[in-house]
Amino acid sequence: MSTDFQKARDALGARLRELRTSGPQGRLTGPQLGERLGWPHSKIYKLENGRQTATADDLQAWAEATGRPDAVTELLSRLKGLESHVRSWRRQLASGHRPVQDAITAEHARTSTLYIWENCLIPGMVQTPAYARAVFTRHAQLMRSPRDTEEAVRARIRRQEALYDSGKRHRIIMWEGALRALVCPPAVLAAQLDRLSGLIGLDTVELGIVPFTAPLKIHPANGFWIYDDRLVIAEDWHAELWIDDTDSVAVYQRTWNLLSASAVFGADAQRIITHAQNGG
């Protein structure tokens, strides 16, 4: 967990403790507040000590139970700032994959140039429905989240209409391994590779492949997406990171540029895709 995230969670916990100990009704002990809320008192101390992330409902209930309903707006603002950086999959996927897709679609809508790097998957912006279905299904199994696979697939495919918007640019690079990873049945992967071939030459899409044999200026680590110069979204197993501070966005842009320098495009990229299609 990032240091910045933990500092923000600690600060939120300290504010919750302040509300508990200095409310207009007088100081409440942890067990007293827990009894009012119907929570185990251990949850009170976990929240106050930054060892558990509060939900919006938790904050609403806390403010009301301590006699400070006027503090709700402030607390929710702190939570929003905290979650703008680390968004756990457990919390995001509580209602399924569709809401996550809708949040990403909103960011796409306000973006002119999208930079994408993927090291092991075909990027969502160019996935076929069958490939996307396989990815969503396996992720739902891993996260034990509600299965709204078909809704999520439809949302992802609708977002791909932006590929044909003359006012947008999609600069996509991926590791050659993404062309070969059997995260889906072989027939689905074959159709997915056909889809990639069809995008080469589209004036709104720059599609590059980093070959296995390419000299690398930086190691091909986790995937990330850069939205203009204002936001980076990177995925880990436990959470999705939304990064918007200028210095960090610049690091990801430099990383993308280094990876792009090892990529091939156009006819050379087509040859690598064809090689993968032929099982070479």
Rank of each mutant, 00 (worst) to 15 (best):
D194C: 05
I172C: 10
A191L: 10
E240W: 03
E161V: 06
I209N: 02
G167D: 00
M125V: 04
R180N: 08
T137G: 02
L231F: 02
P211Q: 03
H219L: 15
K217R: 15
A214C: 04
V183W: 09
A152W: 09
I226M: 05
D236I: 13
Y227T: 10
A178H: 01
R138E: 14
V264H: 07
I172W: 11
H238Q: 13
G198Q: 09
L193D: 12
C120T: 15
H139Q: 15
P123T: 06
A221V: 06
A187Y: 11
G208M: 03
A190I: 11
M174Y: 11
L202T: 01
Q141A: 14
I209H: 04
L121P: 05
K168F: 05
V126H: 00
L142C: 12
L196E: 08
I172Q: 09
D247P: 08
L216K: 06
L121F: 14
T213C: 14
R147H: 13
I226L: 05
E176Q: 14
P215A: 01
I218Q: 12
W175P: 13
P215M: 03
E240K: 03
H139I: 10
T255L: 04
T128I: 00
G201T: 10
M125Y: 09
Y131C: 02
D247L: 14
V251Q: 07
A234C: 11
D165W: 03
R171I: 02
D165K: 01
F224W: 04
S260N: 14
E161Y: 01
E161R: 10
L241A: 12
M125W: 09
L179V: 08
H170T: 00
V264F: 07
T255W: 02
P211K: 02
D228N: 06
I243H: 07
Q253W: 05
W225K: 04
A214L: 02
Y164M: 06
G124W: 02
W237I: 15
W242Y: 13
L142S: 13
Q141K: 10
A239E: 09
L179G: 10
S145I: 08
L163R: 01
A162G: 07
Y252A: 03
A152N: 09
T204Y: 00
I233H: 11
Q127N: 11
E161W: 03
D245C: 08
R133N: 09
S197V: 11
Q192F: 07
L193E: 12
E161I: 07
L179H: 09
E206I: 02
S197H: 12
D244P: 05
A178F: 03
C184L: 12
E235T: 00
A239T: 08
W242A: 12
T204H: 01
V135P: 05
F224R: 04
L163M: 02
I157T: 01
S262Y: 01
P129A: 06
P129S: 06
N257C: 08
F136L: 05
G198I: 04
R195P: 04
S260H: 14
R156H: 12
I243W: 05
G177W: 06
L163G: 02
L182P: 13
A181I: 03
A130G: 07
A187D: 15
V232P: 09
P220E: 15
R144I: 11
S262D: 08
R180S: 11
